[in-house]
Every structure is written in structure tokens, then in C-alpha cells.
């Protein structure tokens, strides 16, 4: 038998999940801001390419969970920029901890898109969009780690509700509701990304010109 769950829990869960999406959005925007310049340099020719490559490798090696605790303990709670007092919230700290991941994967995807664009394969370059959407959903999943530093988000709503029950059966019911909630949204998102990717890929194949084929072969090292 499922335990008695109030409407408050479901609204709390939805609000919490909304925060996960918001933190992921912040991380995506920041990731684009850092990833784009890295991608531009990466797409250049010559030894300068080694710099973004090294930075991306380092960013990739930083575990999000560790970065989150690191930032929580290192960052001041309040900073002043151009005379304006800015409070660094825990939500912002989480978004910032997702930055190494988002910046590195965005840099990679954007560099590839730039190379496609440069050779005139515009539709292939547009595959960056479904890639960004996929990255966004991965960021939503990862932002659940925010529960570990006390951010009032989806996972913490689930854990708080589960803590109200002693019996493991009741707690598993709460977890199952959480899995269902995240699962529905994320699977829908992933299906959407898949559709967009297929659509763009089909467009690429349909509109590919002979010159595209030649240049694409160059890009792929062919």
C-alpha cells in the first residue's frame, strides 16, 4: 500500500524539480560563455589549439560533486562587483560547480560545429542544437547533487519526505514517485532531442552538396 502523501509533497517536488531545471539553465548559459571562446580557439589551426585542449581535459577531470563542495567552502558568501553587492546563493554555487562539465562538452561540440560551418556544411553545424539540449538534460540530472549541500530542490524534497517514514516500504514508494517524476520529464526530453537530431540529420543528408561531401571527408580525417 502506498503511504499517505499530501498534496504539499507533490507541489514541493515540482517546485524542487523546477529549481533543478533553473540551476541547469544557469550552468548551460555559463558553459556557453566559457565554452564558446574555447571552441573558437580550438577551431583555429596551429599550436594555439593545444591550450583549449589542455583546459578542456582538466575541466573534464574535475568531478562535479567535489567541485561543488570546493566552491561551497572557498567562495565568499557575498562579493562586490562594480559597487554592487552580490550574494552567492547555494543554487548559484551548484550551477557554478556544473560549469567544468558544461564548458568542456560545449567547447567540444561547438568546435566541431564551427568546423562544419567553416566548410559550408551549415546544417551539420546546426546539430549543435540537439547536442546542447542533451547537455542540458544531463545537467538537470547532475543538479540533483545540490541536495548534498542543502539546496531545496527535487531530490531534497524526496529525501525530506522519505525521512518522515520509518518503514522501508513507505520510503521506497516515495523514491519511486521521484524516479517516475524525473523519468517522465527526462525521457520526454531525450526523445525530443533524438527527434530533433534525426530531423536535422535527415536535412543534412538531403541537402548535402558534392562540395560538402569533400570537405566533410577532410574534417573526419578521410
Amino acid at each position: 500500500m502506498p503511504p499517505h502523501l499530501t498534496l504539499g509533497f507533490f507541489s514541493d517536488l515540482l517546485i524542487g524539480m523546477g529549481r533543478d531545471f533553473w540551476m541547469a539553465a544557469m550552468a548551460l548559459v555559463m558553459g556557453c560563455s566559457l565554452g564558446a571562446p574555447l571552441a573558437i580557439v580550438w577551431a583555429l589551426r596551429g599550436p594555439i589549439r593545444l591550450l583549449p585542449n589542455a583546459i578542456v581535459q582538466l575541466l573534464r577531470a574535475a568531478p562535479t560533486f567535489v567541485v561543488m563542495f570546493f566552491l561551497l567552502n572557498i567562495l565568499p558568501h557575498r562579493i562586490t562587483i562594480f559597487g554592487n553587492d552580490i550574494v552567492i546563493s547555494r543554487q548559484f554555487t551548484v550551477a557554478l560547480s556544473l560549469l567544468p562539465y558544461s564548458a568542456s562538452v560545449i567547447a567540444e561540440s561547438a568546435a566541431e560545429a564551427l568546423r562544419h560551418w567553416r566548410v559550408g556544411s551549415h546544417l551539420a553545424a546546426l546539430l549543435l542544437l540537439p547536442n546542447l539540449a542533451r547537455i542540458y538534460f544531463v545537467l538537470v540530472m547532475s543538479s540533483g547533487s545540490a541536495a548534498a549541500i542543502g539546496v531545496h530542490e527535487g531530490i531534497s524534497s524526496i529525501l525530506r519526505q522519505a525521512d518522515q517514514f520509518q518503514a522501508i516500504g513507505d520510503r521506497l514508494w516515495v523514491f519511486a514517485i521521484g524516479v517516475l517524476g524525473y523519468g517522465l520529464i527526462l525521457q520526454t526530453g531525450f526523445i525530443g532531442v533524438q527527434k530533433l537530431r534525426s530531423h536535422l540529420a535527415a536535412q543534412v543528408t538531403r541537402r548535402r552538396r558534392p562540395s560538402d561531401l569533400t570537405e566533410s571527408s577532410k574534417i573526419n580525417g578521410g
Binding site: M141, S145, A148, I158, L159, V179, Y182, G183
Partner: peptide, 13 residues
């Protein structure tokens, strides 16, 4: 489709 933190909590519980 389960956030990794939640999977860990379920396993631990």
C-alpha cells in the same frame, strides 16, 4: 532517467 544521487540513496536505503 534517475538522477545518480537518488540512485545512490535508494541503494543505501
Amino acid at each position: 532517467s534517475t538522477p545518480p544521487v537518488l540512485s545512490l540513496v535508494i541503494a543505501a536505503s
